[in-house]
Amino acid sequence: MELRVLNYFVAVAQEGNMTRAAKKVLISQPALSRQIADLEAELGVKLFDRQKRRLTLTPAGHYLLEQAQEILELTSRTKRNLETTSFISGDLTIAAGESIGMQQIMNVISQIIKDHPTVKIHLLNGDYSYAERKLNNGTADFGVIIGDISLPSYASLTLSEKDTWGVLMPRDDILAAKEVITPKDLCGRSLLTSQQALQTHLFQNWLGNYYDDVNFIGDYNLNFNGTLMVKNHSALMLTLDNLADTSESSGLTFKKLCPSLQQTIRVIWKREVSLSPVAELFLKSLKEEICKDCR
């Protein structure tokens, strides 16, 4: 598969029409049709269902689209990173979960952009499994993960910040009058929790014998979407401190857990991969920033 042909395929998949895709990639429609047919023959699979007015992806086509976009993104980023002279340039991509610890990282990035205006930053949101996938396929330089997750094939750097878990609730909830929330307080309540916490059984351990008395009605990947259910009084939400708006006008409040539940924040990267100059600079600057907090 040539990169040029993958680019043609992505254009057809996005447009759903051979004529529009041909205009987009600046070749003739018959030539584009031949390229797609040759690609299907090369792979031995049907990539499109050809309907009267539109082309739709087959399951094999959906899989190739996801992979092709990753390949083209990686190729483009690698090219930009190589197009440097004596100054620091290129792209820095970080896949991260939502965390107050990102402030320390943003401080470092802000200084890099100030010193090297040609650097481009890409921030991707997702939990540890998303960050791991982006690192593995080479479309992220670093991942930021929350919690003590074993990832032996990665190098890591622990931030000085820690995340603190608690419960987000409406200000008029009966639990809002409490200073802290205990496992017993959550008995009989409907809760949302993060996908990562669910996968790692974090609250099963914290709730202990009260676990079966709590009604976990669902999980969330992005904190903001979960807060909308809390505002609707549909559930309480187990989340991290400083992520939700808890001002008086928000109608929400956050209460820490007791016993306290804190988790470390780590920046991870692949050991065997050579970092680009801008990635090397980011890592060096972040280490210096962490050392300042340790003094």
Rank of each mutant, 00 (worst) to 15 (best):
A13C: 12
A13L: 07
Q14N: 13
G16L: 15
R20L: 06
A21E: 10
A22K: 02
K23H: 13
K23W: 13
V25K: 09
S28I: 06
A31V: 12
L32R: 09
R34D: 06
A37T: 11
G44D: 05
V45K: 12
K46P: 02
L47I: 08
T56G: 05
T56E: 09
A60P: 00
L64T: 01
L65D: 00
Q67T: 04
Q69C: 08
L72F: 10
L72R: 07
E73M: 09
T78G: 09
G90A: 07
A96W: 04
M102I: 13
M102H: 06
Q104V: 05
S110Y: 06
S110P: 06
L123R: 04
L124H: 12
N125K: 13
Y130P: 01
F142K: 05
P152A: 08
E161H: 11
M169S: 12
P170W: 00
K184Y: 08
D185H: 05
C187P: 00
L191A: 06
L192I: 05
Q196Y: 06
W206D: 11
N209E: 15
D213H: 13
G218W: 04
L222M: 14
N223S: 11
F224R: 01
K231C: 07
S234G: 00
A235I: 03
L236A: 05
M237F: 02
E248K: 14
L252A: 15
K255D: 06
I265S: 10
I265T: 11
V267D: 00
V267Q: 00
K270M: 08
K270G: 05
R271C: 07
E272W: 08
P277Y: 03
V278L: 01
L286G: 02
D293Y: 11
